[in-house]
Design a protein around this nucleic acid. Structure first.
Lengths: 217, 217
DNA sequence: GATAAAATCAAACGGTCGTTTGATTGAAAC
DNA sequence: GTTTCAATCAAACGACCGTTTGATTTTATC
């Protein structure tokens, strides 16, 4: 079961992932966790404080892992361009792998992260994005080195597209799109990566698009 | 100004896109539209009824346009495989072009559509997805014909990835990701397409990934 | 075993939520 | 001018929201 704090965080991951942040009430949350209503505010101060703690608990080790992978890649290639598949893997691999069976509760957090990317509420988005400053500072130059045929703006856009595919996959991996009238097939994260990474690599390294004027500074 | 019904729909597009469905109250909505609180329920029955009407108003002509483009392409290529760039354009072009200045209020609806793809609330998602049955029935076989080197499951996954990039771009086009510490550059939809389509085409037509077992029926 | 701090509890706070009511308006139909 | 009916209005409905209170229980310290 674990202590109250953990039980609240676990319940919050599940419910926020299923229903969103605003649609989940603290009453429903504490009831689901089997704790008293007031203990949420005792431990986290507010609902927003809970959301913040929730992201920190998972995102900090996650992004540390991504940066460690990037460190290793940069060391191995001595600051030169990193092969794109490895670089993409280092970026999308850790979050997608969180869905593995071993990391208990990982899948629900993966869905939650997918949600957070498209969360309209400003405060949630801000909490979420603040966890990525360091990640962007390190990964963007790496992508630029690995995509020398593209200017800065184009690299930014392609990273944007990549994040979109990743977030959408994380949010809806368990139901590979009702659009397609397919029943849900739970996916091994390694197989998911084996499909996603080549798709992204091909898109990222495709030639510079015609018909887009160069950025003027 | 327009009549009450239209004013509510317009205000709903703006507020839902900015704040999400659950976070926007009917009071805030009717106040923003400059109409009486009760008129929302008079014209739409409920908040959910409004959401449904909101999607129908835009999605019906939008998907009709997509299908018309597909019709034209299939006719031109006599049922044979359609060149991938044209097919992708027919799929992602109409929604992204909704942001053009001419179609008033299009941009806010584009953001709203991006939101709806990742809306946790079941009812909203269901309303939204019901608009796409016909679209999937027509576009999936077309993609299969244009991607003969891929099996059915891989095509489904790649369409899934494509939808992710599209939805993320629609939801966050105006702020090309705070992740990248870039200030917002409002984008001409044609330039946006000139970037997105080649990215998606390259990803879609990349070779069949290794390490993924064939689907067994 | 007394003391102090940390944690849990039932109960209530003021507000806002989506929705409903019943009266009132305005324009068309006769 | 009367009737009719769709549309708008102010006001209120009960339910639920996030948060706070103050008493009570548990846990650790001496």
């Amino acid at each position: 079961m674990g202590d109250t704090k953990t039980r609240i965080l676990d319940a919050a991951e599940t419910l926020f992932a299923e229903q969103g942040f605003t649609a989940t009430s603290v009453r429903q949350l504490t009831a689901s966790a089997g704790v008293n209503l007031a203990s949420l505010h005792y431990h986290f101060g507010s609902k927003d404080g809970l959301i913040e703690a929730l992201f920190e608990r998972r995102l900090q080790p996650l992004n540390r892992e991504r940066l460690a992978l990037l460190d290793a890649l940069e060391k191995r290639h001595r600051g030169g361009p990193i092969p794109l598949p490895s670089l993409v893997e280092a970026f999308v691999g850790p979050p997608l792998r969180l869905s593995s069976a071993s990391s208990e509760g990982g899948e629900r957090f993966m869905r939650l992260m997918g949600r957070a990317f498209s969360e309209p509420e400003q405060h949630v988005a801000q909490i979420f994005l603040s966890q990525f400053k360091e990640l962007a500072r390190r990964f963007i130059p790496a992508f630029r080195r690995s995509l020398p045929h593209l200017d800065e703006e184009e690299v930014h856009w392609r990273i944007h597209f990549m994040v979109g595919s990743m977030a959408h996959t994380m949010a809806h991996a368990s139901r590979v799109s009702q659009l397609l009238e397919r029943c849900c097939v739970p996916q091994d994260p390694e197989q998911l990566l084996a499909r996603l990474v080549p798709f992204l690599v091909a898109g990222l390294e495709s030639p510079r698009p015609a018909g887009v004027e160069e950025a003027v500074p």
